[in-house]
Amino acid sequence: MPGRFFLTRPVAEIALFLNVEDDLGPQPARRNIQPGQEVTVLTGDGLTTMRWGMIPVGRVNARGRPVMETIINARSETVFDKSAFEGVGRAVIPVDGWYEWTGEKRRKKAWRIAAKDGTPLLFAAITDTWEAPGGQRVDQVAAVTCEPNADVKPIHHRMGVLLDAKDVKRWLQGTEEKAQSLMRPWPEGQLRIEEANDVDWTAA
C-alpha cells in the first residue's frame, strides 16, 4: 500500500536517475524502512530526508473533527479535496521497492515488490511540517495510493501511485489538475513480485 520500503542502492544512483544533485551524500543501505523513520525524498528543492508519517496536529476531517491517526498513506481519490490534506506540498519517495503481506496474523507471508528492469520506483507523495513541542520543526511525508493493478491486486487492495521519471516535474510543480492525471495504477507487467523470506524485520 505500501507498508514498508527498501532502498539499498547508493543515493548517488538515485540522484543520477532523477538528474538532480546528490545533496545527501553516502547513506546506509536499508532493507526495512518503517513508518516513523526517515526516508529519502525529492522535493522541488532537491533531495532531502523526511519522517515517513504525517502527525496530523491541527488537521480535521470533513466533519470538522480532529484527525488522530498518523497518516502514512493518502488516498489519491481524496488527497486534493479532503480538509485533512489542506495546504500540503508534493514530493517523490524514490526507493528500490516495497513490501506487502498476505495471510492471517500468525501465518502472514511477506512479498517484495520491485521494478522488473531494476530501476528505482518513484512514489508520489505529499508533505507538511509538524511543529513539535519546544519549537522543533519536523518535515514529514506520506505516500499517495490508488487502486491496484492486476499484478498487485492478488496481495493488496491498494498500491502506491508510481511515477515515470519524465513525470516527476509535473507531479512536483504542475497544477492540481495535471497532478491528478498521474494518480493511476502502474502499467501491468512491469513489477517483479516475490516472497521476502530473507528480511530481518527487526532490523532497519
Rank of each mutant, 00 (worst) to 15 (best):
P2K: 11
F6I: 02
P10I: 00
E13Y: 01
E13A: 10
A15V: 04
F17L: 15
D22F: 01
G25C: 00
P26C: 02
P26H: 02
P26V: 08
A29L: 04
R30C: 10
N32Y: 15
Q34A: 14
Q34Y: 08
G36V: 06
G36F: 01
E38K: 15
V39S: 10
T40F: 14
T40S: 14
T40H: 10
V41A: 05
T43S: 07
D45P: 10
G46E: 05
L47C: 05
R51S: 06
R51C: 13
W52E: 06
G53T: 01
P56I: 01
V57Y: 12
V57K: 13
G58Y: 00
R59Q: 07
V60L: 11
V60N: 13
A62H: 03
A62L: 14
R63Q: 10
V67F: 10
V67N: 06
M68T: 15
E69W: 07
E69H: 14
T70W: 06
T70A: 14
I71H: 08
I71W: 04
N73V: 12
N73T: 09
A74H: 02
E77W: 05
E77V: 12
E77G: 04
V79R: 09
V79A: 11
F80R: 15
D81C: 15
S83D: 12
F85S: 01
V88Q: 13
A91D: 09
V92L: 02
V92F: 05
I93N: 07
I93A: 05
P94C: 06
P94K: 07
D96V: 09
G97S: 03
Y99R: 00
K109R: 13
W111V: 07
R112N: 02
I113T: 00
A114D: 09
A114W: 00
K116N: 07
D117V: 11
G118K: 02
T119A: 15
L121W: 00
L121N: 01
L122I: 07
L122H: 00
A124C: 03
I126D: 05
I126A: 04
D128S: 14
T129F: 06
E131F: 13
E131I: 14
A132R: 08
A132T: 01
G135D: 04
G135C: 06
Q136M: 13
V141Q: 03
V141G: 04
A143Y: 01
P148I: 01
A150T: 10
P154C: 11
I155P: 10
H156E: 09
H156W: 06
M159K: 05
G160I: 10
V161D: 09
V161T: 13
L163Y: 04
A165C: 15
R170C: 12
W171S: 10
W171D: 03
W171A: 13
L172Y: 13
Q173G: 09
Q173H: 14
A179P: 09
A179S: 04
A179Q: 03
R184W: 02
P185S: 06
W186P: 06
L191V: 04
I193Q: 09
N197P: 06
V199E: 11
V199W: 02
W201Q: 11
T202R: 12
A203C: 12
